[in-house]
């Protein structure tokens, strides 16, 4: 028999600290696969955020910088300008990118920095204990909105991908997920295209991955994926937003 699948070469042997069933692990795997397939492991620099994925540098065997909270796009802009031959990407959650890092993200997008942004949106602050995020759905219960998010108090959930698609510096915006085999294959193609765009100097590529946070949502991993299909996807619609 021929081996048809094994752990990606660039994924380290370190056991990931993520909760069982967390989407981060799957996204890490496809990022590692794309970098290996493009043969750019020695010329790729990742910028990791503050949040659960702060330790991304322990799991994917490339060069990393860990940015201050929300500042990954600003750090990546500087790295790309100083090292224009490198492929530079950020890996950020919604608490990092769409809250404290909104300004850095929008302006990096608007300047058309030649970087790729991987945005993992699970509609909650996972690491700090499941607090409400700007992306939390209306009516969704979190530790700081125990009665559910209310529009007249907390405003509306923030669709960052749709917003940055309006900016001229952004060449590619897509929204994907990684909860089924088919969706993993599609998300991998999207990340590959984003990295190719960054290498080709086409501008900023923005890949949102709608994800589950089963421990923050107080669900089982499989139950969280089902809840995501029923509740997240109608609002955060999957597919290409700008190509």
């Amino acid at each position: 028999m021929e081996k048809v699948y094994s752990k990606p070469r660039l994924l380290t042997d370190a056991v990931m600290h993520y909760c069982p069933g967390c989407s981060h692990g799957t996204i890490h795997k496809i990022v590692a696969e794309v970098i290996a397939e493009l043969g750019i492991e020695s010329s790729t620099i990742g910028v990791s955020p503050v949040g659960c994925s702060v330790f991304a540098y322990k799991y994917i065997d490339i060069d990393w910088i860990q940015a201050a909270h929300g500042r990954a796009c600003a750090v990546a802009s500087a790295v790309k300008r100083l090292e224009p031959e490198k492929m530079v990407f950020t890996y950020q959650g919604d608490g990092d990118l769409s809250a404290i890092g909104t300004g850095e993200t929008i302006h990096a997008c608007n300047r058309g920095e030649n970087i790729a942004v991987i945005y993992v949106n699970n509609a909650i602050y996972g690491m700090t204990g499941g607090q409400m995020a700007p992306t939390t759905l209306v009516g969704m219960k979190t530790s700081t909105s125990p009665g559910g998010r209310e529009v007249n108090i907390h405003g509306y959930p923030f669709k960052v991908a749709d917003m940055v698609a309006q900016l001229e510096g952004v060449c590619y915006v897509t929204r994907q997920s990684v909860h089924t085999p088919a969706s993993v294959r599609k998300a991998k193609k999207a990340i590959r295209l984003a990295f190719e765009n960054a290498l080709a100097g086409k501008g900023l590529s923005f890949v949102e991955v709608v994800s589950s946070c089963n421990s923050g949502w107080k669900m089982s991993p499989v139950g969280a994926n089902e809840w995501m299909e029923q509740n997240m996807f109608p609002f955060y619609k999957l597919g290409d937003i700008k190509v």
Partner: peptide, 20 residues
């Protein structure tokens, strides 16, 4: 069947798959 669907969705990269 060696389709590798299980390995694709495994967040922790625990699964290796062989196929004829």
């Amino acid at each position: 069947t060696g389709c590798a669907n299980c390995a694709l969705v495994c967040p922790d990269g625990c699964i290796e798959v062989w196929r004829d």
